[in-house]
Every structure is written in structure tokens, then in C-alpha cells.
């Protein structure tokens, strides 16, 4: 029997093969849902789907697109926003 706290459906099992040949179960929290655009709700590209402790290990440029509103708005919505500002 695993530890009582691991007997939860919010935790996923990962089967890992050790160098000795055994298969061991590792327990991890489930991944969050994909990042979505703030205005249209489309799935954002270039934003990794990981838990925060794994995102922290990445470089800042790998966490979101390197443009204003990157990681918040999708490219289409950001472009429309800039055009609207220019035509004011």
C-alpha cells in the first residue's frame, strides 16, 4: 500500500525504470490546463504546460513569447490591440 496521501486521484503515477532494472512508481501532481488568451480564449502557443516549480527551472525566454502581452494575449489579439492604438 502506498502512503495514504498518495492514494488520491489528484496525484498521477509515473512508472520509471531504474538503472537496476526495477520499475518504480513516482508520484506527481497533475499538470495544469493549457494557457489561454485573455480576450478570445484561444490556446496560447509557446507557453509550456507545467507546474510552477518546473517553469522556474526554464529560462525566461522559454516561458512565454517575447513580445508585449506575450503569454497573456494571443498574437492575433495583440496585433489588433496595437492597430487600434495606432488608429486612435
Amino acid at each position: 500500500m502506498p502512503k495514504r496521501s498518495y492514494r488520491s486521484r489528484s496525484i498521477r503515477k509515473i512508472y520509471i525504470k531504474t538503472p537496476g532494472g526495477k520499475t518504480v512508481i513516482h508520484y506527481e501532481r497533475k499538470k495544469p490546463k493549457k494557457a489561454h488568451c485573455g480576450s478570445c480564449g484561444a490556446i496560447l502557443k509557446g507557453v509550456p504546460r507545467e507546474r510552477p516549480y518546473k517553469l522556474r527551472k526554464l529560462a525566461k525566454t522559454q516561458r512565454r513569447p517575447e513580445r508585449p502581452y506575450g503569454g497573456v494575449l494571443c498574437s492575433k489579439c495583440a496585433r489588433l490591440l496595437f492597430i487600434r492604438e495606432a488608429r486612435k
Binding site: 517575447e66 513580445r67 508585449p68 498574437s75 496585433r79 496595437f82 492604438e85
Partner: peptide, 10 residues
Amino acid sequence: CLKIAGKESG
């Protein structure tokens, strides 16, 4: 002009 796309957008 105003750049709309890329890291220099805006």
C-alpha cells in the same frame, strides 16, 4: 510606421 508583430511590436 508602428510595428505590430514580433518582439519590437508597439
